[in-house]
């Protein structure tokens, strides 16, 4: 399955009144989910992608991707623009705490500006109450900016990294 196939699937789910669709084939799993509030956000998110798309063949996908028999909803939201003018993806802090770039004071940082990262890659630690929380990337891309200094406090939802 290539990017075109996935885009085709997204469009199809978008035009249907399905809220969510999952395709599973062996270890490959693709879930397409519509945002809960159609008016407030883009119509869908594609997540999670467990295996690279090429592990999945489009032929096998055909039977599963049939839309449901129910009639299409007239008020289904239009496909959202992919990019709403935002240039970078942001990785934010899920909690109040202290930001660490490395697992220990003498250790190398998890990531540097310019590093290519993929989903699941550990980017930093946020510590609160001696709870060490490794923050994994939820996006693929390249680190373009690290916005917080090592050892500094961070607030909930503060942007930590910009990813291209």
């Amino acid at each position: 399955m290539n990017l075109d196939d996935i885009q085709r699937l997204i469009k199809m789910v978008d035009e249907s009144d399905l809220d969510e669709m999952t395709i599973e084939e062996g270890e490959f799993k693709l879930t397409l989910k519509k945002a809960a509030e159609p008016s407030a956000s883009p119509a869908m998110n594609a997540m999670p992608m467990m295996m690279p798309p090429q592990y999945f063949s489009p032929q096998q996908a055909q039977p599963t991707q049939a839309p449901p028999p129910a009639a299409k909803s007239a008020e289904a939201p239009p496909p959202a623009p992919v990019d709403a003018g935002k240039k970078y993806k942001e990785v934010r802090s899920p909690m109040v705490g202290t930001f660490y770039r490395a697992p220990a004071p003498e250790a190398n940082p998890y990531v540097q500006v310019g590093d290519s990262i993929s989903k699941g890659k550990v980017l930093c630690i946020i510590e609160a109450m001696k709870l060490m929380n490794e923050i994994e990337s939820d996006v693929d891309g390249k680190i373009v900016k690290i916005l917080v200094e090592n050892g500094k406090p961070v607030e909930f939802d503060q942007v930590l990294f910009l990813v291209e």
Binding site: R92, K130, L131, M132, N133, E134, E136, D138
Partner: peptide
């Protein structure tokens, strides 16, 4: 002593 460790992706543990 206690050492609690976790990892979060997009705020989900």
């Amino acid at each position: 002593g206690v050492l609690v460790e976790t990892s979060a992706q997009a705020g989900v543990v």
